[in-house]
């Protein structure tokens, strides 16, 4: 319990900064909606863009002149931001003890390594939930202030559920790498690179159909955003698969941390 509270305190400042950035990101993103939706002409411009261009801009598959399409176009940017937050949080919450040389202090206390991991994972989970809620609530508030047409609360909720699952995947990937790698310090940059690669893959597979199989390496492509937008639904089987991945990453985090020789 004390480690859990300590971690919450240690991450409080970063959490506030990330929360403000998330809200600003939603605000500035939605602020452009008026330009996209202002008139029929812009819609034609988007239609005439070559597909490659649409993919690069993230415009493919959505009617960005409608609020539902526009939010879906904005969503990947929110998603990748929260993914980076979760990944860096996961890796640093484990690795920082060795980085700051506080491992000796912590391990010399009468706590098991499993207790340490449990406390840290719970604290990280709270952080990730808060970031998700900030994104959700600011999306709901800001969208409704711009929205003049259909209600897209259902879409926003579903997209944030997807966001939460992606956050958990990257959070546990971060903790796994930090617990596993002998030089746990590098886990942060490694997991950030994995996100970038995952993001690039998600773009490439949009462009090149026969590379679709690569999507397995990109959690951003696990869920169909089209389905979320059009039907307000999420694939149950994909969700279960993702939960299994998260469970495996978590179990591996415990396993590797338990057997780890701490660098002092």
């Amino acid at each position: 319990m004390n480690i859990f509270i300590r971690e919450l305190k240690a991450h409080r400042k970063a959490l506030i900064i990330w929360s403000i950035c998330m809200a600003l990101l939603v605000l500035s993103g939605m602020g452009k909606y008026t330009a996209y939706s202002s008139g029929g002409a812009s819609s034609e411009v988007f239609d005439k863009l070559p597909n490659t261009m649409k993919v690069m801009l993230g415009l493919n598959g959505f009617e960005v002149t409608k609020i539902s399409g526009f939010f879906a176009f904005l969503f990947p940017y929110l998603e990748i931001t929260t993914a980076i937050h979760a990944a860096l949080l996961g890796s640093s919450i484990i690795a920082k003890e060795e980085r700051d040389k506080t491992t000796e202090f912590l391990i010399a206390k009468p706590v098991s390594r499993n207790t340490i991991i449990t406390s840290k994972l719970l604290a990280a989970l709270i952080n990730v939930i808060i970031i998700n809620l900030v994104s959700l609530l600011s999306s709901l508030a800001i969208v409704s202030s711009f929205n003049t047409g259909e209600d897209i609360t259902g879409e926003i909720l579903i997209l944030h559920l997807i966001m939460f699952i992606v956050q958990l995947i990257f959070l546990t990937l971060g903790t796994l790498l930090a617990a596993w790698l002998r030089k746990s310090k590098i886990s942060g940059s490694l997991v950030a690179n994995i996100i970038i690669v995952g993001y690039i893959i998600s773009k490439v597979t949009d462009l090149v159909d026969y590379l679709k199989a690569l999507n397995i390496f990109s959690p951003f492509k696990y869920f169909s955003l089209q389905k979320a937008v059009n039907e307000n639904e999420i694939s149950i089987s994909t969700t279960l698969l993702c939960l299994a991945v998260i469970a495996v990453f978590t179990a591996c985090t415990y396993y590797f941390y338990q057997r780890r020789d701490m660098n002092v």
Binding site: A10, K101, T102, E104, F105, A108, P110, V264
Partner: peptide, 13 residues
């Protein structure tokens, strides 16, 4: 058990 390490590092803030 009480332990005093050779180099002391603690949570900075």
């Amino acid at each position: 058990l009480g332990y005093l390490p050779s180099e002391v590092f603690y949570y900075d803030n």
